[in-house]
């Protein structure tokens, strides 16, 4: 029971990180119909920025908010400078640009901060968090879940209740009609990139205390996030979030209770999940099937 709850909470903690990144993937996907493979490396780079600020003596939460802000601006700039010129290019071109971004961020991080693995501080105290009865979980797990839920709630409220959020949804749904009501669609896309980068930054800072910091830390995380997004529905933000949490829990429980999976085969599980979803339910658990006229 004790172990089960701990693994469940641990799964929700990493699941929340997958959920955040899955949401970032979905936001870009809704506007561009493509998966931003560089999303994970952008988050990794953001986390290094936070590490640099904290190492320079800045208090954790100050570094946290500065990193989120810088990442938001970085996302906007990347869209304007790198993505916009190829916006109308072929899918293959855009994918190559995404992969290029991935490699650039990866090697840039390696060049600036080296490939040596670094510990990354958790903002939460290093002691057990007493849940109920005699069951306690790691404080960082509980804290990461709270931070993730706060971010997801803020994003939801923004899209649901603000005029700008509505305009961003409109721009992704119907760019032409959006222009005709005066929405500057290009800027909405850039804002979407900014938001996705900011969400990714939070995910990176929450996962780094668990995985440690190195330029390749996000490769697996992004794969799990992608599996979560597919499982929930690549065109459904809410679905992707639920899918991310599910993958996190599944990963942890399978790693603990299915003996032959262990830690080594967990990644295979994610891959199997992706393939299974694509074959049996391409629209995911919560997404609407895309009807293509033939």
């Amino acid at each position: 029971m004790d172990l089960f709850v701990q693994q469940l909470v641990g799964g929700l903690a990493t699941g929340g990180i997958y959920a955040s990144l899955a949401l970032a993937l979905v936001m870009i996907h809704r506007a561009t119909e493509l998966i931003n493979f560089a999303q994970g490396e952008m988050a990794m780079f953001s986390t290094y920025i936070a590490w640099t600020l904290i190492s320079a003596g800045m208090p954790y939460w100050a570094a946290f908010f500065i990193t989120v802000t810088v990442s938001f601006a970085g996302g906007v700039v990347i869209e304007r400078v790198v993505i916009r010129p190829v916006e109308k290019a072929s899918i293959l071109t855009i994918i190559v640009v995404f992969i290029g971004l991935l490699l650039i961020f990866n090697s840039l991080a390696g060049w600036i901060w080296t490939y040596t693995i670094k510990p990354f501080e958790s903002p939460f105290p290093d002691r057990p968090f007493h849940l109920f009865a005699d069951i306690s979980v790691r404080m960082h797990d509980a804290g990461a879940i709270l931070v993730t839920l706060a971010v997801l709630t803020l994003v939801y409220l923004f899209f649901r209740f603000t005029p700008l959020g509505l305009a961003m949804r409109g721009a992704a749904l119907n760019p032409e009609s959006s222009r005709l009501v005066g929405i500057r669609v290009g800027w909405m896309l850039a804002l979407g990139w900014g938001l996705a980068a900011a969400i990714g930054a939070v995910a990176g800072m929450m996962v780094a205390p668990i995985t440690f910091l190195d330029p390749n830390m996000m490769a697996f995380v992004l794969l799990y996030a992608f599996a979560g997004a597919l499982l929930g529905g690549i065109n459904s933000p809410g679905g992707a979030v639920v899918g991310g949490f599910m993958v996190g829990v599944l990963e942890n429980l399978a790693g603990t209770y299915v003996p032959f999976i262990g830690n080594e085969l967990k990644l295979t599980l994610a891959l199997l999940l992706i393939i299974a979803v694509v074959i049996f339910r391409p629209s995911g658990l919560f997404g609407k099937p895309v009807v293509v006229r033939v």
Binding site: P163, L166, R169, G170, L173, S177, S178, V181
Partner: peptide, 16 residues
Amino acid sequence: TFTSLTVEDNLTLGAY
């Protein structure tokens, strides 16, 4: 039409 938005949201966008 912004098909997946509500009627009200469509009108709100008109006044964007």
